[in-house]
Design a protein around this nucleic acid. Structure first.
Lengths: 112, 112
DNA sequence: TCCCTGCGTTTTGTTTTGGAACTTATGTCA
DNA sequence: TGACATAAGTTCCAAAACAAAACGCAGGGA
């Protein structure tokens, strides 16, 4: 089954996952909830490749979870801010945060 | 960055995603919350390949989210039931369900 | 002028996934 | 007994996704 097929699944969870159902996308959302909005901020914070980041941002904008906003006109620079639709997923990430704190202790320090 | 590195990230959300951060795993959880427990039930319901399903179930058992349980001794058959740890992710899926209902209307009927 | 920043795109090779057939152990029907 | 069914995986190969690093581009500043 492919992403595209999932978006018309009978199950609302599956349809949600067709948009945010991969770890990179969810890490972008995490950063967005932490106030980040710029390409470089996401890239550095999450450790994902620029390649993947660009694709995921595009998808999130297409789906209306983020909005691409011009924040500087010369030079032209865009950043990505949460829409109301995007904000409404925040509680899911909060559950994951609490779950991670409780059930996934850090075994050794990671650099990123 | 790879899965394995994510499991020791400083961020609890990232650590959670190292376990459940892909759509197939989350669909397995959805089915588990709906009461399914058998390999064939997961396979049929989610539409994922048996290949991927086997791998994800193994991972979820290793991480203590599901428990592999002998439910028939002749022939030997195992199924997968939620642990308390697994139950505690249910609220996250509930958020995704509500979000999908609200923001991801079905455009056309899907077969699976 | 040359280097720097911010936001991507391209390239190349590795890893993961999809799809379908196959396996193993037992049970069931005739 | 033989033929078929069931449940839970495993194996194989091609296709898709990904990682890493270099490149592109449009200004800005020294």
């Amino acid at each position: 089954m492919k992403w595209s097929e999932l978006s018309d699944n009978w199950c609302p969870v599956a349809r949600t996952l067709s948009v945010v159902g991969d770890r990179w996308t969810l890490l972008i959302l995490r950063d967005a909830y932490l106030g980040k909005s710029k390409f470089e901020e996401f890239a550095e914070s999450s450790g994902m490749t620029r390649h993947i980041l660009a694709e995921r941002l595009k998808r999130l904008v297409e789906e209306g979870v983020l909005e691409r906003r011009l924040y500087s006109s010369a030079p032209k620079r865009y950043d990505y801010v949460l829409t109301e639709k995007g904000e409404e997923l925040r509680p899911a990430l909060r559950v994951m945060k609490d779950w991670g704190k409780k059930h996934m202790p850090v075994r050794r320090e990671a650099k990123a």
